[in-house]
Design a protein around this nucleic acid. Structure first.
Length: 230
DNA sequence: GCGACAG
DNA sequence: ATCTTGTCGC
């Protein structure tokens, strides 16, 4: 039996209802990773990304999951999954397209992730329900969103000095939805937000720690490459 | 009202 | 996301 958030035959209205329903359910949850002391206990992090291709007029998604050992900051192994994609692309509903394939790839990994990084937004979303939130909820694993482009909210990211570690908040009325963060010198910032059971500060801390020399954290960079290679 | 809008 | 060559910059 599977989660109703994995249904792929929903109307947009039904999908929106589910987003609102689960937003309420996970509101004010406890047991989140929020302190730097918690970070020391984190070992297995996973970066996931999805690429697309056509076959017989149908659209398919290929998800790559990269298992990364944060203790030694090194690559461990990877897994791929392919699946047909039927849910249409609509801004604000990415999770309904990508969660199922991402989950299939993650299931193939030899370790249970302590944290999953998604190539997309978390609570930087009209209903605070980006795909990182959706994935974390379905798997009951901490997640964060790390997107390459802005979505909602306003920030000064365009004038942010591109120096590793620099960041500027993404705001919507007084509410901090996330941070635009420069992960390496000279590179355009990425947009980091909470997904599930993690604090914003910890998400930023781990993204920085796992960034080597690319715009994205290495697990996500590798996931992007791997998902496109085949 | 119109357009913009993660991947 | 994906279709695609050259080209500007370090």
């Amino acid at each position: 039996m599977q989660h109703e958030l994995l249904q792929t035959n929903l109307t947009l209205d039904e999908a929106e209802r589910l987003q609102e329903k689960y937003r309420q359910i996970i509101k004010d949850q406890t047991g989140i990773i929020s302190k730097s002391s918690d970070v020391k206990k984190i070992r297995w992090i996973v970066g996931v990304d999805v690429s697309y291709y056509q076959e017989k007029l149908k659209e398919y998604g290929r998800a790559a999951a990269i298992l990364w050992d944060l203790r030694f900051n090194r690559f461990m192994t990877q897994a791929l999954a392919k699946d047909i994609i039927t849910f249409p692309y609509k801004t604000g509903f990415l999770g309904f397209r990508e969660c199922k394939v991402m989950l299939e790839a993650i299931k193939k990994l030899p370790e249970t992730p302590d944290l999953i990084m998604c190539d997309g937004h978390g609570i930087i979303h009209p209903r605070r329900f980006g795909e990182a939130v959706q994935l974390g909820l379905i798997l009951n694993v901490p997640t964060c969103g790390i997107a390459k482009n802005p979505f909602i909210g306003s920030s000064e990211w365009k004038v942010l000095k591109r120096i590793r570690g620099n960041k500027t908040p993404i705001l919507e009325n007084k509410e901090v939805l996330g941070y635009a963060v420069c992960l390496n010198d000279g590179m355009k910032p990425v947009f980091i937000s909470v997904g599930y059971k993690i604090s914003l500060n910890v998400a930023v801390e781990i993204a920085l720690k796992s960034s080597l020399d690319h715009r994205q954290p290495e697990p996500l960079y590798l996931a992007d490459q791997f998902s496109k290679s085949e």
